[in-house]
Amino acid sequence: MMRMYEAVRLKDITISYDGNSPVIEGASCVINKGSKVGIIGPNGAGKSTLMKAIVGLLPFKGEVEIFGKSLKQSYEKVVYLPQQEEIDWKFPVSVFDVVMMGRYVHLGWFKGPTKEDYKIVEESLKEVDLWEYRDRQVGKLSGGQRQRVFLARALAQKAEIFLLDEPFEGVDQETEERICDFLDRLSKEGKTVIVVHHDLKKAKDYFDDLIMINHRIVAYGPTSQVFIPTYIEKTFSKESVILEKGLVILK
Protein backbone atom coordinates (compact mmCIF):
# COMPACT_ATOMS: atom_id res chain seq x y z
CA MET A 1 0.00 0.00 0.00
CA MET A 2 1.21 3.42 -0.90
CA ARG A 3 1.04 6.14 1.68
CA MET A 4 0.60 9.80 0.87
CA TYR A 5 4.16 10.75 1.65
CA GLU A 6 5.88 8.00 -0.26
CA ALA A 7 7.74 9.01 -3.44
CA VAL A 8 10.04 6.12 -4.31
CA ARG A 9 9.94 2.56 -3.11
CA LEU A 10 12.75 0.14 -3.91
CA LYS A 11 11.91 -3.51 -3.49
CA ASP A 12 14.81 -5.92 -3.28
CA ILE A 13 16.87 -4.37 -6.09
CA THR A 14 19.77 -6.46 -7.34
CA ILE A 15 21.99 -5.25 -10.20
CA SER A 16 24.87 -7.14 -11.75
CA TYR A 17 26.91 -6.58 -14.89
CA ASP A 18 27.56 -9.63 -17.12
CA GLY A 19 26.74 -12.14 -14.40
CA ASN A 20 29.59 -10.94 -12.19
CA SER A 21 29.04 -10.55 -8.47
CA PRO A 22 26.28 -7.98 -7.99
CA VAL A 23 27.09 -4.29 -7.73
CA ILE A 24 23.93 -3.79 -5.73
CA GLU A 25 22.36 -6.61 -3.77
CA GLY A 26 18.92 -6.74 -2.21
CA ALA A 27 18.42 -2.99 -1.80
CA SER A 28 15.04 -2.04 -0.35
CA CYS A 29 13.94 1.30 1.01
CA VAL A 30 11.24 3.94 0.90
CA ILE A 31 12.05 7.56 0.06
CA ASN A 32 9.60 10.12 1.35
CA LYS A 33 8.05 12.84 -0.74
CA GLY A 34 9.71 16.20 -0.25
CA SER A 35 12.84 14.82 1.37
CA LYS A 36 16.43 15.51 0.44
CA VAL A 37 18.24 12.22 0.36
CA GLY A 38 21.95 11.63 -0.03
CA ILE A 39 23.29 8.36 -1.35
CA ILE A 40 26.75 7.95 0.14
CA GLY A 41 29.31 5.20 0.15
CA PRO A 42 32.91 4.48 -0.91
CA ASN A 43 34.10 4.45 -4.52
CA GLY A 44 32.71 1.53 -6.45
CA ALA A 45 30.00 0.88 -3.87
CA GLY A 46 27.29 1.17 -6.52
CA LYS A 47 25.96 4.66 -5.75
CA SER A 48 25.55 5.79 -9.37
CA THR A 49 24.44 2.31 -10.38
CA LEU A 50 21.57 2.36 -7.90
CA MET A 51 20.55 5.81 -9.08
CA LYS A 52 20.58 4.73 -12.73
CA ALA A 53 18.36 1.78 -11.89
CA ILE A 54 15.80 4.12 -10.32
CA VAL A 55 15.59 5.99 -13.65
CA GLY A 56 15.41 2.79 -15.66
CA LEU A 57 18.80 3.17 -17.34
CA LEU A 58 19.99 -0.27 -16.28
CA PRO A 59 18.38 -3.68 -16.16
CA PHE A 60 17.86 -4.95 -12.62
CA LYS A 61 16.03 -7.54 -10.56
CA GLY A 62 13.42 -6.32 -8.12
CA GLU A 63 10.95 -3.47 -8.38
CA VAL A 64 10.98 0.31 -8.41
CA GLU A 65 7.77 2.14 -7.62
CA ILE A 66 7.28 5.83 -8.26
CA PHE A 67 4.31 7.15 -6.32
CA GLY A 68 2.98 3.60 -6.22
CA LYS A 69 3.24 3.10 -9.99
CA SER A 70 5.78 1.43 -12.24
CA LEU A 71 8.53 3.51 -13.81
CA LYS A 72 7.02 3.05 -17.26
CA GLN A 73 3.94 4.92 -16.10
CA SER A 74 6.01 7.67 -14.52
CA TYR A 75 8.70 8.76 -17.00
CA GLU A 76 7.74 12.43 -16.81
CA LYS A 77 7.81 12.44 -13.00
CA VAL A 78 11.46 11.48 -12.66
CA VAL A 79 14.40 13.49 -13.92
CA TYR A 80 18.04 12.47 -13.89
CA LEU A 81 20.86 15.00 -14.03
CA PRO A 82 23.88 13.36 -15.65
CA GLN A 83 27.48 13.74 -14.60
CA GLN A 84 29.26 16.41 -16.63
CA GLU A 85 31.61 13.97 -18.35
CA GLU A 86 28.67 12.03 -19.78
CA ILE A 87 27.82 14.93 -22.12
CA ASP A 88 29.40 15.88 -25.46
CA TRP A 89 29.90 19.60 -24.86
CA LYS A 90 30.80 20.31 -28.49
CA PHE A 91 27.39 19.23 -29.70
CA PRO A 92 25.82 21.98 -31.84
CA VAL A 93 22.96 22.83 -29.53
CA SER A 94 22.06 26.04 -27.71
CA VAL A 95 21.28 26.52 -24.04
CA PHE A 96 17.65 27.13 -24.96
CA ASP A 97 17.48 23.91 -27.00
CA VAL A 98 18.86 21.86 -24.14
CA VAL A 99 16.29 23.21 -21.71
CA MET A 100 13.54 22.59 -24.26
CA MET A 101 14.53 18.91 -24.18
CA GLY A 102 12.97 18.84 -20.72
CA ARG A 103 9.60 19.32 -22.44
CA TYR A 104 10.01 16.40 -24.86
CA VAL A 105 8.58 13.81 -22.48
CA HIS A 106 5.36 15.83 -22.42
CA LEU A 107 5.23 16.43 -26.15
CA GLY A 108 5.16 12.82 -27.29
CA TRP A 109 5.93 11.69 -30.83
CA PHE A 110 5.39 13.83 -33.94
CA LYS A 111 4.61 17.01 -32.02
CA GLY A 112 6.57 20.22 -31.73
CA PRO A 113 6.63 22.55 -28.74
CA THR A 114 3.67 24.85 -28.12
CA LYS A 115 3.67 28.44 -26.83
CA GLU A 116 3.16 27.03 -23.37
CA ASP A 117 6.37 24.97 -23.71
CA TYR A 118 8.33 28.06 -24.80
CA LYS A 119 7.00 29.90 -21.76
CA ILE A 120 8.01 27.12 -19.40
CA VAL A 121 11.51 27.03 -20.89
CA GLU A 122 11.82 30.81 -20.47
CA GLU A 123 10.73 30.62 -16.83
CA SER A 124 13.10 27.75 -16.13
CA LEU A 125 16.04 29.63 -17.65
CA LYS A 126 15.21 32.77 -15.68
CA GLU A 127 14.96 30.69 -12.53
CA VAL A 128 18.63 29.70 -12.84
CA ASP A 129 19.72 33.16 -14.16
CA LEU A 130 20.71 31.91 -17.59
CA TRP A 131 18.10 33.62 -19.76
CA GLU A 132 20.67 35.99 -21.25
CA TYR A 133 22.80 33.00 -22.26
CA ARG A 134 19.94 31.23 -24.04
CA ASP A 135 21.43 31.46 -27.55
CA ARG A 136 24.89 30.35 -26.56
CA GLN A 137 26.26 26.98 -27.58
CA VAL A 138 26.03 24.90 -24.43
CA GLY A 139 29.74 24.06 -24.28
CA LYS A 140 30.67 27.75 -24.16
CA LEU A 141 29.64 28.07 -20.54
CA SER A 142 31.54 27.60 -17.30
CA GLY A 143 31.22 24.37 -15.34
CA GLY A 144 28.76 25.95 -12.92
CA GLN A 145 26.63 27.42 -15.68
CA ARG A 146 26.52 24.06 -17.44
CA GLN A 147 25.25 22.47 -14.25
CA ARG A 148 22.54 25.15 -14.06
CA VAL A 149 21.47 24.47 -17.64
CA PHE A 150 20.71 20.92 -16.61
CA LEU A 151 18.89 22.12 -13.52
CA ALA A 152 16.78 24.36 -15.77
CA ARG A 153 16.07 21.39 -18.01
CA ALA A 154 14.92 19.39 -14.99
CA LEU A 155 12.68 22.31 -13.96
CA ALA A 156 11.22 22.51 -17.45
CA GLN A 157 10.32 18.85 -17.22
CA LYS A 158 8.16 19.71 -14.16
CA ALA A 159 9.33 16.51 -12.54
CA GLU A 160 8.46 15.41 -9.02
CA ILE A 161 11.61 13.48 -8.29
CA PHE A 162 15.08 14.88 -9.02
CA LEU A 163 18.07 12.57 -9.17
CA LEU A 164 21.49 14.20 -9.27
CA ASP A 165 24.73 12.31 -9.81
CA GLU A 166 27.60 14.16 -8.11
CA PRO A 167 26.23 17.65 -8.86
CA PHE A 168 29.01 19.39 -6.94
CA GLU A 169 31.77 17.76 -8.94
CA GLY A 170 33.89 20.30 -10.83
CA VAL A 171 31.92 23.39 -9.82
CA ASP A 172 33.11 26.37 -7.79
CA GLN A 173 32.04 27.25 -4.27
CA GLU A 174 29.48 29.79 -5.44
CA THR A 175 27.78 27.32 -7.77
CA GLU A 176 27.77 24.70 -5.04
CA GLU A 177 25.90 27.09 -2.77
CA ARG A 178 23.48 27.99 -5.52
CA ILE A 179 22.76 24.35 -6.22
CA CYS A 180 22.22 23.76 -2.51
CA ASP A 181 19.77 26.65 -2.21
CA PHE A 182 18.06 25.36 -5.27
CA LEU A 183 17.70 21.84 -3.87
CA ASP A 184 16.35 23.31 -0.62
CA ARG A 185 13.74 25.21 -2.53
CA LEU A 186 12.71 22.15 -4.49
CA SER A 187 12.31 20.16 -1.32
CA LYS A 188 10.24 22.94 0.28
CA GLU A 189 7.96 22.83 -2.75
CA GLY A 190 7.38 19.16 -2.04
CA LYS A 191 9.75 17.78 -4.68
CA THR A 192 11.87 14.82 -3.78
CA VAL A 193 15.61 15.21 -4.25
CA ILE A 194 18.04 12.29 -4.38
CA VAL A 195 21.74 13.05 -4.68
CA VAL A 196 24.74 10.80 -5.16
CA HIS A 197 27.45 12.39 -3.09
CA HIS A 198 30.93 11.47 -1.97
CA ASP A 199 31.95 14.33 0.34
CA LEU A 200 31.22 13.08 3.84
CA LYS A 201 31.98 16.38 5.50
CA LYS A 202 28.99 18.03 3.89
CA ALA A 203 26.66 15.06 3.88
CA LYS A 204 25.52 15.91 7.37
CA ASP A 205 24.44 19.46 6.54
CA TYR A 206 22.97 18.85 3.12
CA PHE A 207 20.60 15.93 3.53
CA ASP A 208 17.52 15.09 5.61
CA ASP A 209 18.00 11.40 5.06
CA LEU A 210 20.93 9.27 4.03
CA ILE A 211 21.16 5.99 2.21
CA MET A 212 24.54 4.54 3.12
CA ILE A 213 25.58 1.83 0.73
CA ASN A 214 28.39 -0.54 0.09
CA HIS A 215 26.87 -2.96 -2.41
CA ARG A 216 24.09 -3.43 0.15
CA ILE A 217 22.19 -0.78 2.02
CA VAL A 218 24.11 -0.52 5.28
CA ALA A 219 21.85 2.07 6.84
CA TYR A 220 18.95 4.23 5.79
CA GLY A 221 17.14 6.88 7.75
CA PRO A 222 17.27 10.45 9.08
CA THR A 223 20.81 11.79 8.87
CA SER A 224 21.02 12.43 12.61
CA GLN A 225 20.29 8.79 13.32
CA VAL A 226 22.34 7.01 10.69
CA PHE A 227 25.36 9.27 10.29
CA ILE A 228 27.05 7.79 13.32
CA PRO A 229 30.45 6.12 13.70
CA THR A 230 29.08 2.56 13.73
CA TYR A 231 27.42 2.88 10.34
CA ILE A 232 30.09 5.08 8.82
CA GLU A 233 32.71 2.52 9.70
CA LYS A 234 30.56 -0.29 8.36
CA THR A 235 29.94 1.55 5.09
CA PHE A 236 33.43 2.77 4.40
CA SER A 237 35.29 -0.06 6.19
CA LYS A 238 39.01 0.51 5.85
CA GLU A 239 38.75 3.67 3.83
CA SER A 240 37.85 5.89 6.72
CA VAL A 241 39.14 7.05 10.03
CA ILE A 242 36.62 8.09 12.60
CA LEU A 243 37.41 11.10 14.70
CA GLU A 244 35.56 12.37 17.73
CA LYS A 245 32.10 13.93 17.37
CA GLY A 246 31.33 11.91 14.27
CA LEU A 247 33.80 13.78 12.07
CA VAL A 248 35.18 11.60 9.37
CA ILE A 249 38.25 11.94 7.21
CA LEU A 250 38.83 9.82 4.20
CA LYS A 251 42.29 8.39 3.84
Binding site: G56, Y80, P82, D88, F91
Partner: peptide, 12 residues
Amino acid sequence: SSFDPIMAKSIG
Protein backbone atom coordinates in the same frame (compact mmCIF):
# COMPACT_ATOMS: atom_id res chain seq x y z
CA SER B 1 19.17 10.76 -28.35
CA SER B 2 22.29 12.07 -30.10
CA PHE B 3 23.03 14.81 -27.57
CA ASP B 4 22.06 13.03 -24.37
CA PRO B 5 21.30 9.33 -24.88
CA ILE B 6 21.02 8.86 -21.13
CA MET B 7 18.21 11.35 -20.82
CA ALA B 8 16.57 9.97 -23.94
CA LYS B 9 16.49 6.56 -22.34
CA SER B 10 15.34 7.90 -18.99
CA ILE B 11 12.24 9.48 -20.51
CA GLY B 12 11.41 6.20 -22.21
